[in-house]
Amino acid sequence: MSNSNILEVKAQKVQEIREKMEKAKSLVLVNYQGINVEQDTELRSTLRKNNVEYKVYKNTMVTRAAQELGIEGLEQYLEGPVSIAFGYDDETTAAKLIADFAKAAKKLEIKGGYVDGKVYDAELMNQLAKIPAKEVLIGKFLGSIKSPLSNLVYMLNAVAESKEA
């Protein structure tokens, strides 16, 4: 393979990473060193079912893609063996799934991440993992406003019936 072919392949890989980063609502950088093949397969399966893509790329290529997108501060988490979970549906699912899996696979750890235009350290990404999914939050909110509204409807109905009588 000639030098120009190698550079072309690298440029294509950086473009691929960049496109995934642009599309994702969150990135979770993970130190996967020490987990076995069975654990890795189980993790990938769980992530795939939840529309989270899990990839290993060369750190230099991820750094270059991040720089092209104007993302600063991510490179500090791109040292050693790092995999990336690209969360496409929402901001919390990828972090939540990785954090939950890390409870069983002690060697797996979140190094940092990128959500909503900001780079976060491991501690903040683990806090993000504790936030319920958007659907759960909306359900709780609707449940909290449903009760007073149904009481209001009941009361207005009672007033209307008493005026009719």
Rank of each mutant, 00 (worst) to 15 (best):
E164S: 05
I110Q: 00
E75D: 14
Q15W: 06
V28A: 01
Q67D: 15
E38K: 11
A99K: 09
A160K: 14
K58W: 07
E72G: 02
D89A: 06
K111G: 05
G34H: 02
T93C: 07
L142A: 08
A11C: 00
E38T: 14
L142M: 13
A94L: 06
Y114W: 13
F86V: 10
Q76N: 12
N151V: 15
I138V: 14
K55D: 12
E8S: 09
V153D: 07
K58H: 09
T92R: 07
A165H: 07
E161A: 14
L47A: 03
V56E: 02
L47Y: 01
Y88K: 11
V37D: 09
N3A: 14
E42H: 01
G70M: 01
E123H: 04
Y88L: 15
E68A: 13
M61H: 10
T63L: 08
V52I: 06
A129Q: 07
N5P: 00
V9C: 00
K13Y: 11
E109Y: 02
L97D: 08
K103M: 03
A133E: 08
Y77K: 00
S4G: 09
L78A: 04
R44P: 00
Q76K: 11
Q127L: 13
V30I: 15
E135F: 06
D116S: 06
I98V: 10
Y114C: 00
L142T: 09
N36W: 03
K111L: 15
E123G: 01
A104K: 15
D40C: 04
D116N: 12
V136L: 02
K130R: 14
L137Q: 04
I138Y: 05
S150T: 14
K96W: 03
D89G: 03
Q76Y: 03
E68W: 09
D90Y: 08
Q127P: 04
S162E: 15
N126R: 13
D90C: 01
R18F: 13
S45C: 01
K96M: 04
E53F: 06
R18G: 11
K111V: 07
E75C: 03
Y114M: 07
K58I: 01
D100H: 14
V37N: 09
T60N: 12
N50M: 09
A104W: 09
M1E: 12
K107G: 08
N151A: 15
A158K: 10
G70P: 03
E38R: 09
T46G: 02
L128N: 04
E72H: 14
G117N: 02
E16V: 09
V56L: 02
K111N: 10
M125K: 03
G113R: 07
A122P: 03
A158G: 08
G34Q: 03
N50D: 05
S147T: 07
A99C: 01
A158E: 14
L74F: 00
L156Q: 02
Y54A: 04
Y154Q: 15
K106I: 12
I17F: 12
D90A: 07
P132D: 13
G143P: 12
K13D: 05
G112V: 13
P81R: 10
V30Q: 01
A165P: 02
N50I: 04
L78E: 04
K20C: 07
G87C: 06
